[in-house]
């Protein structure tokens, strides 16, 4: 199954990042992975898993890698990867949020998701196992491509004697600055107390 290949590729990449950058540069993914590629549930799980990879566990690291100038000046590959990220984000929003039709942003999401489905399985709303399998395979292919691109970039960075140190230093700095929202709560309470706002909730 393609997901097996994808998962293996991701595991190797995350190990490489953790070993060479920082232990916490990529966190564990604990969402349930798809078990087959045959139905809607598996597709939903694949979307969730992909979102966790790109936007949660490896958010900072993937941003750094994909923010580097493209290898061999291949602007097209950078644009493709950006498109994949955007697709995953929109699929996840569409599948798991109650978006409407009133706002432009909502319509944009709906339109892109619908267009993506059509390009995968010629249906704007997959409803057969065949449809879901085609969508599943397509998303797997795109994710494999993005992970393998990240492999290449990481290898390039690590093998550069001049630039490796500076890039890794920047990477680490970004990891250090990346705080989860809840981590600010205590700081805010503390600051409020110092300012004398004792009743601050």
């Amino acid at each position: 199954m393609k997901f097996t290949q994808l998962h293996a590729s991701y595991t190797v990449l995350s190990e490489g990042i953790r070993v060479n950058v920082a232990r916490d540069a990529v966190s564990n993914i604990n969402v349930r992975p798809p078990s087959t590629a045959e139905n809607e549930v598996d597709f939903l799980r694949l979307v969730t898993w992909s979102y966790a990879v790109l936007f949660e566990s490896g958010r900072v690291s993937f941003n750094v890698i994909l923010g580097l100038p493209p290898l061999n000046n291949s602007v097209l590959s950078i644009e493709k990867q950006a498109k994949t990220k955007s697709t995953v984000q929109k699929l996840r929003t569409w599948l798991f949020h109650n978006i409407g039709f009133e706002k432009d942003r909502e319509m944009e999401i709906r339109s892109e998701v619908s267009g993506w489905f059509i390009s995968c399985c010629q249906s704007f709303s997959p409803n057969t196992p065949e449809h879901w399998r085609m969508c599943f395979d397509r998303l797997c292919d795109d994710m494999i491509e993005i992970i393998e691109y990240c492999h290449q970039v990481l290898a390039f960075v690590l093998s550069s004697p001049i630039d490796k140190e500076a890039i890794i230093a920047t990477w680490k700095k970004r990891l250090q600055r990346d705080w989860d929202a809840h981590e600010f709560d205590k700081l805010i309470s503390d600051s409020a107390l110092r300012l004398g706002a004792v009743d601050f909730p």
Binding site: V64, L68, P69, A166, I167, W171
Partner: peptide, 10 residues
Amino acid sequence: ERYSRYPAVT
């Protein structure tokens, strides 16, 4: 070459 290898600042 250096410029081509460094990430853009956010």
